[in-house]
């Protein structure tokens, strides 16, 4: 089994529901508590296993080439490219929606939730000296044994996705467990054996499942929508997939009658319409 998440960038509105759902489930969960420092003071912060960031994506200024073309294709389709998408349609503008007021270059706001990618080649695991970090053979979930971690931070250095955060109170590393304590809990109703973030997402932008099963939702969505892993060039083989924004929905315009505005009022014949 290769369990992981699919995240739909076409529908994520950046509401942070998945982030707080994650926090509340996991603070009493296997990886918890998730401590918070200075919760009511200056600069509050704490450990989170899932964070949402927002980016503005703008038409290519051709200054950023992908790290390597072949590496790109090895990890999903190039549908993800704003540029590729844009040139397929009329123009880049058609994809992102031009700022009609300012005529500024086409750009788009993208919300990007990030939690552990459950990488297949997870260096966070190999660098861990204590063996606290490990990847479960049976389902690929990467976990941390809280009793064994010495808080050296090395695994967080090895993680390119910022998925690991040290818990400052307990001095041990925390990360997304893929809600291992929900998905296998047979005392929960079957429909609830899903990660907390997935259950909670109001736009259903998060889907959980087995990527090894070609019939699963996650596999199907990845193929249909060109789901892609992030930073493939680093070779971690992240399991989670991001679905690119869809192409803009097009609607034809009704054909104009081409009559001058006011003059036609006179010509309006009333249709006889029964009340």
């Amino acid at each position: 089994m290769k369990l992981g998440l699919v995240i739909d960038l076409d529908t994520c509105v950046g509401c942070h529901a998945c982030a707080t759902a994650c926090k509340q489930w996991n603070t009493s969960g296997t990886i918890g508590p998730l401590s918070d420092q200075n919760p009511y003071g200056k600069n509050p912060n704490g450990s989170w296993l899932n964070r949402i960031r927002t980016y503005e994506v703008k038409e290519s200024l051709a200054d950023q080439k992908p790290p390597s073309a072949n590496q790109q294709s090895s990890c999903g389709s190039d549908k993800f490219d704003l540029y590729a998408l844009a040139t397929k349609g009329e123009s880049a503008l058609s994809f992102v929606g031009v700022n009609s007021a300012t005529g500024a270059p086409a750009s788009k706001t993208v919300h990007m939730p990030m939690s552990c990618m459950q990488c297949e080649d997870a260096d966070c695991v190999t660098v861990c000296p204590t063996g606290a970090s490990y990847k479960r053979a049976e389902d690929g979930i990467v976990l941390i044994d809280q009793d064994k971690c010495m808080g050296c931070n090395l695994c967080s250095w090895a993680c390119p996705y910022g998925a690991r955060e040290l818990d400052e109170t307990q001095g041990v590393m925390k990360k997304c467990t893929l809600c291992v304590d929900r998905i296998y809990d047979e005392k929960l109703p079957e429909s609830e054996r899903q990660p907390a973030c997935v259950l909670s997402c109001p736009t259903s932008s998060r889907v959980f499942g087995d990527f090894d099963d070609p019939t699963s939702d996650v596999s199907r969505l990845t193929i249909e929508r060109g789901g892609k892993g992030l930073m493939p060039e680093l070779g971690y083989k992240p399991t989670n997939r991001y679905l690119p924004p869809r192409e803009k929905a097009e609607v034809p315009a009704m054909v104009k009658t081409n009559q001058p505005a006011l003059s036609k009022l006179k010509k309006w014949a009333n249709r006889v319409i029964a009340r």
């Binding site: 960031r53 038409e59 490219d81 993208v110």
Partner: peptide, 28 residues
Amino acid sequence: GSTIGSATGFTQAQVRLLDAGHNADTFL
């Protein structure tokens, strides 16, 4: 090396952070 493009998947666009989702510094 990696760019914000490859980090977000928008490899041929200019990508700028608008909001990191937190004000104070985090562990990261």
